[in-house]
Structures are given as C-alpha cells and as structure tokens.
Amino acid sequence: MNILQVNGLTKQFGGLTAVNDVTFDVERGSITGLIGPNGAGKTTIFNLVTGVYKVTGGKIVFDGKEIQNEEAFKIANMGITRTFQNIRLFKRLTVYENVLTACQYNANYSLFEAMVFGLVPKKIKRNSRFYREEKLLKEQAEELMEILGLQDRRNFIANNLPYGFQRRLEIARALALRPKLLLLDEPAAGMNPEETEKLTELIAFIRDKFDLSVLLIEHHMDLVMEICDKIVVLNFGCKLAEGTPKEIQQNPEVQKAYLGGGNNA
C-alpha cells in the first residue's frame, strides 16, 4: 500500500503555476526521489504536503486520509515531517535543546501538572506523570543524539555547528516525532563527496531503524541513483517522468531537460 498519494496537485502563486497537476505515489517503506531543475516546484510540493501552503487544487492522501486542508502541526502529528532546504533550526538553542523540544511523542502531561510537580521534593515528584514522561523524553533525546552522532556536540549552540552537523541535527529533530514519512529537502546541499557518502548511508540506516518512508529532493545524482527505489522528475511544475533510477537515467526526455543539461551539480 502507498503511504502517500498525490493526485492532480496544483499550486498557483498569482499568475505563476509552480506545481501543475502532479500525480505520484510514495510506497510504504520506500525511498522516493524527487528531482528536477531549479525552480521546478520540488520544494513547493513539500510545502503543500506538510501544510505550509494551501493547495490550489488536487488531493493529498496520507495513510488513507485526505490531508490537503489540514493545518501544518496536525499533519506533523499524523506522521509527516521534514527538513528544510535553507535549514531552520532553533538557532540560539543548544543541540540537546533542539532535539528535546521536538521530543513530544507520547507526552501527555498537562500545563497544570508541570506547574504543580516542577519543584517539589523528589519523593512526591517521582510518582507523577510529569516526572515519568519528562524522564522518558530526555532519554529519547539522548538516544537520537547518539544515533545521529551529535553527542559530542550536545552543548553547542545550533547556529555555531558546522554545516553538515546542522543538517544532521535537523534530521534528528524530525525523527523525534517518530514520523511515518520523512521529507528531506536537499540534505546533501553544500556537502563534500565524503560527507555525502556518509549521509547516503545514514538515510538508508534511519529508514530501516525507524521504519520510515522517505521522500527526498536532491541534486547530487550519485546519492539519488544509489538509494532511491523510485524517482519522480519534475520540470516547470509538471511531472516529466517517473520510474526506477535506471529507467530515469535512460529516459531521453529527462536527459534533455535535466541530466544532459550540464547543470546537474
């Protein structure tokens, strides 16, 4: 079954049609690539799927539910989350704080409980839901930092991290939600070949470890061809082709519009 179905998706900004009647699926457990030249509408599709923009037309079905009219935070809580092309961390917070903030999965204690149990002797506190859940959240944050290799830099202010680690931190923060579908917007942008190689492994690893489906925008063709089960090609807002990496590589139209264009950096 498909985790995500995008059907006739259209988005207009004034006179500009950024996404034009695009239809594709993401199979459960797969890594699907979304590629296309600059301005093709890739990021716009992410913004539509995550509820950041309202759709002009078409349907988005996630896990059997139509979500095109839902608010962004609700879509996130249903199980879709993402990273951003131009990284959006909580810049002035530490690595640990960034991850901990996103760890809310299964936390239900109320504001009132926090106010009452925040500063009482441990003996009383220990039996409270507040204490139990906070402890769990902190453990989750530690685990995520461990998995993504952020432990050594846990007290770094996010903004001061090297670029590659900022991207990792964004992935850690997204994983804290225990998403079913993870959207990665150019995760390898600005990385050297070695870092890109590591990232490729990481994406495959977290897909298995967290039982995810991944939709991936990327300009690094090596990465895309290596890990994607399927690739969707966009051009000027329209879907140009869809298929396995091999099919895409051999597709003459794709080569003309994109791969052969010489600007596939």
Binding site: T50, G51, V52, E71, A72, F73, A76, N77, T81, R82, F84, R88, L89, F90, K91, R92, L93, T101, A102, Q104, R173, A174, A176, L177
Partner: peptide
Amino acid sequence: EEELASSIIGI
C-alpha cells in the same frame, strides 16, 4: 525561535 519549524514538529 522559529515558528515554521515549530509547527513542522507538531507544535
């Protein structure tokens, strides 16, 4: 800190 990122992590 970052409103858009907040809503994307379910806040």
